[in-house]
Write a protein that binds this DNA or RNA. Structure first.
Lengths: 350, 350
DNA sequence: TTGTAGGCGTTATCAA
DNA sequence: TTGATAACGCCTACAA
């Protein structure tokens, strides 16, 4: 707590520099720099004087200027579609946690899933000389986006995505998670299992589809392609597709709702149609949310910790940036999922 | 699309500067600068050469270096408790929208509601020379935080908060929103109306409490202080307080659940106790969420657009930064709320 | 129309 | 131990 009246209070324009501090303390700018950077070899008396001057003026070293010298911004970019998606909010929190601890600034940016925006943001982070990037792009194989990523040429980790050109990628183990869910449903006697999801052109979507198919196959069952509705993560899409699925001649007996925003759509559709789960259809959702817990009956969910995903991505990125890991190396890090059993599925006679 | 093989592909270290571009184009650095800044008076032919060189090398001007000259970071900080709170995510999206459009970078940071973290983040943004700040502090009157805000001495707008020292503040009209909700309940015959909320020491909390009291008073009714549980926004708090309220000798007949995370707690508590709404208690929540819509029965909610809040905050901040508004001026901007009637309240005989 | 040089706020090297 | 001074990457008078 400063005893003296802080001069900064009277000088709103933050145009203070080392120069001012040096003058105020009666030393050279070099000395000031040494003091704030704790370079050994400064006389305690001088150090005190300088610290007093700093306190007095309310000066803070200009990080932008430091960065320009160190040619490191100590800033990490994180691009995803929309921060309002609770998944990304959680990842952000996790990543922020480890990055702040290491003195890095996390800057998030929403692309609305538009490739042009993704490219623009990539350029932006390149211009701002981010030290690295965490990326969740809409379509892994979009050439424009891939070019922009290459052009940015900085350490990166793909979040729930995987690039053809390789590199680090982190994500939940949706393959295993889906198999587990499907196995559970098959055990309950289900044979016609539908899946609503989005994210075409992403590893997540591939893993989920493959998980469904493989688990079915393991039980000698085939997936009816008509039960796969994989075009969008939007609530309205889930609403519509749930209706369509239930109107099928041979409707599914179980439904996998894979996407945070999908569940409200599914539930609304059921309600509108006067159907209920688990009586008319068994239900499993991805992402354990309030809605899954509070819905009545509560909904069986594939849970995984998105914050951990964020943490791991940040740590791996720092490993690259700080030279503990070869950025060229291709590696995949996976987070476990857990099937949380609740009351949304019922056994059927088959 | 570059025809030539991009040299940057082979030069991962982004150490290119104007110098390199100038050399490559056979001009001086001044010319390069003029070209990228569209300064009139450059021969088209030269301009072309320069642009070709830029494309060729894959160079992007270093924004940090530009900023150090312009002494403007084109960066805005936004501090709040936790990005996982959907309210802040929405505000972020809104603010990001207007800031990106104007070439500013929005940097969000979670403080976990800890004053020390708030102070640290304030210092951080000061060091990074943010052009302005949007602030949602935990306790408006914390002296340490207030000092840090003063020390940062930059344009700011308080989000859902209001400082004693004045300045711009934006927020939803919780006073009117609460009165409207209470008026509705009183009209249904309710006299014992409870309120669970957090945010002590913030304008939001004051507005809500005042709204409840004033509307009650307008009907010649008094608020039973025992029905006010205003200590936390945590789900567990709502769970516990709902139980306690219902166990009262004279339990409330209606409950205002004012906080996004509170509602799940309230619903769980009711379920645990075998009570249901609107039969045993009428229910109104703040923040229209999926949960409020999907819960069965659907829950009457006080809705307001958090994204607009973010947008307005950003616009007002830019007005200050770009000199269209005196930062010293104290002003309050309010967003309307709307009572969305659903099935969670019932008329009682009184 | 183009080039040169000084300055933005730091850090780091080299003398003193 | 401290002080000058040259970078860092860019912009912009001023000169050519």
């Amino acid at each position: 707590m400063p005893k003296k009246k802080n001069i900064a209070d009277r000088v709103p324009q933050n145009r203070l520099t080392v120069q001012d501090v040096a003058r105020h303390a009666g030393v050279s700018i070099g000395t000031v720099s040494r003091v704030i950077n704790n370079v050994p070899g400064v006389t305690p008396a001088v150090s005190m004087k300088v610290r007093a001057a700093i306190e007095d003026l309310g000066w803070t070293p200009n990080l932008a200027a430091q960065n320009i010298r160190s040619s490191s911004s100590r800033m990490i970019g994180f691009i995803f579609s929309d921060i309002r998606n609770s998944l990304y909010a959680r990842m952000t929190k996790g990543a922020e946690e480890v990055l702040t601890a290491k003195g890095y600034l996390l800057v998030t940016a929403s692309s609305d899933g538009k490739p042009e925006r993704e490219v623009a943001l990539l350029e932006l982070f390149k211009a701002r000389r981010a030290d690295g990037m965490i990326l969740t792009v809409e379509d892994e194989s979009n050439p424009l986006v891939n070019e922009a990523i290459a052009r940015a040429s900085m350490p990166r980790v793909m979040m729930e995505r995987e690039l053809a050109i390789g590199g680090t990628s982190v994500g939940a183990d949706h393959y295993r998670g889906t198999r587990q869910a499907v196995s559970y449903l098959i055990g309950l006697g289900h044979r016609r299992i539908a899946m609503i999801a989005g994210g075409r052109g992403t590893r997540v979507a591939r893993d989920r589809q493959r998980g469904l198919e493989d688990e079915m196959a393991a039980h000698g069952l085939a997936v009816d392609p008509d039960l796969l509705r994989l075009d969008s993560f939007a609530s309205e899409y889930a609403y519509r597709q749930t209706q369509l699925l239930l109107e099928l001649e041979q409707p599914p007996t179980a439904l996998l709702s894979f996407g945070v925003r999908l569940l409200p759509g599914v539930i609304s559709a059921l309600r509108t149609m006067g159907r209920s789960y688990p009586e008319d259809i068994s239900l499993i959702c991805s992402n354990d949310t309030d809605l899954a817990t509070i819905a009545s009956p509560a909904i069986t969910a594939i849970r995984y910790d998105a914050m951990t995903l964020g943490r791991v991505a940040a740590e791996t990125l720092l490993d690259q940036i700080e030279g503990r890991l070869d950025p060229e190396r291709t590696q995949r890090i996976e987070i476990v999922t857990e099937l949380v059993l609740r009351d949304s599925c019922r056994a059927i006679s088959g």
